[in-house]
Design a protein around this nucleic acid. Structure first.
Lengths: 225, 225
DNA sequence: TGACTGAATTATGAATTCATAATTACGTTT
DNA sequence: AAACGTAATTATGAATTCATAATTCAGTCA
């Protein structure tokens, strides 16, 4: 996982947006810290112009806060904001489930079955990394299957917003078991093309996930207020 | 985009984001047109740097699309995107209604009562301008009352996305009557603090609004594909 | 010794400059 | 005259420069 070093892509600022966001999400830049423009320019090997364009985008996404003539600070994500974001993600996933129930094709269901199997295998092996990846992919596939591109866009934004919390906490054994059960129920709905049921399960699943994160964050000292 | 913290309108690029978005929403720049950087710099009296920073933000908001080495074009909002956006707005407003039912205080209810009265009076006088304003304010108050800042942020984004459609079509007499009835029912729920009911009504209200816009756009030639 | 003032330093917002990619215009060839 | 290829023009992405706001730090005075 390389976070520093020279870069190349179509436009510098796009790449910088990704890099900086990763830096923040993966806690390379701590909340409340001011973003050191000069230093980042040197580590990335770019001038200030594309970096500042990237900061404008990140400010819009909510990862940094711009203060007039005082540059950018990494945004503090409060517990309340986390709750709010999860509440939104929950209803977005509910909608995704509902619409996916109507629009999904057999091929996509088959792909999700595969991902689900991979996830279950990762669970059996207690491979957190693999589990998270498969889990994430399943949610993304359902969202894609909803056919609602706006939904996908906003979900991506919100997901990035809570990803740092996900990075900080380790899910408990109990929650893991519960999550696996929930995913099993979701697959049942998907096989029956029961969008309404799937939507409700996904919403509930998200709310449970939120509760688990908040509980874990309580035990994580120094995190927000 | 955090709503908290000190407001800074003191930077050029922020002002430019607003101005350019208004330009697009109010059809000053037509969809598909390329954004004339140089010309806009002259009319706004700024250099290219802040303008380009603003374009990056607008690209992430979805109002323009950036093509590598070919600058920015005004995004085409297809009928499908409009439908998708409205579907999202609908579930967001549903959530807002639900949460508002729990959190709202008497003072806010009173303010909404006033706005509702103003809206009804505008309806009686067939004053579209006033009606729209009061209508918009009511929705915003409910969203604010939900206490969910993330919800407010994303709603604002989506609303801007469909605002151009709102700008283009004139609501029909029938739809107007229907909308007023729906708002009446919403007020009833609000008085009873019935969040669940309010949420359902708001969702339905939005879906009806969407249907009305799409129908009106069908009669509006040259609009999307 | 500690708080306050003002100069020096640094960082930031914005303009300008520069290199290069893309588009247009023109001339050649068939 | 039409199509292709090349040169000139234009527009774009990024670096650099510049003016100013903010911060730091030294020196002074209580």
């Amino acid at each position: 996982m390389t976070l520093a070093g020279p870069i190349q892509r179509s436009t510098l600022h796009e790449e910088l947006v990704e890099r900086l966001r990763d830096l923040i999400v993966q806690d390379g830049l701590k909340p409340g810290e001011k973003v050191p423009e000069k230093h980042l320019c040197e580590t990335f090997g770019v001038s200030r112009t594309p970096l500042r364009e990237a900061l404008k985008v990140l400010a819009f996404e909510g990862f940094v806060v711009l203060e007039a003539n005082r540059g950018a600070r990494v945004a503090r994500v409060t517990r309340k904001e986390l709750e709010d974001s999860f509440a939104l993600i929950a209803v977005l996933e509910q909608l995704a489930g509902e619409q996916a129930g109507r629009n999904i094709d057999d091929q996509t269901v088959a792909r999700i079955e595969e991902l689900h199997a991979a996830m279950m295998s990762a669970y059996a092996q207690r491979d957190r990394e693999k589990y998270f990846q498969a889990n994430q992919d399943i949610h993304l596939e359902v969202i894609r299957a909803s056919g609602n591109t706006q939904l996908a866009t906003h979900h991506r934004l919100l997901d990035a917003r809570v990803r740092r919390a996900r990075f900080l906490v380790n899910l408990s054994e109990d929650r893991w078991t519960q999550a696996v059960e929930e995913h099993g129920a979701m697959m049942d709905c998907l096989r029956r093309r029961d969008g309404k049921g799937l939507g409700q399960l996904m919403k509930r699943h998200m709310m449970n996930k939120c509760a688990a994160y908040l509980k874990a964050l309580d035990a994580c000292p120094g995190e927000d207020g």
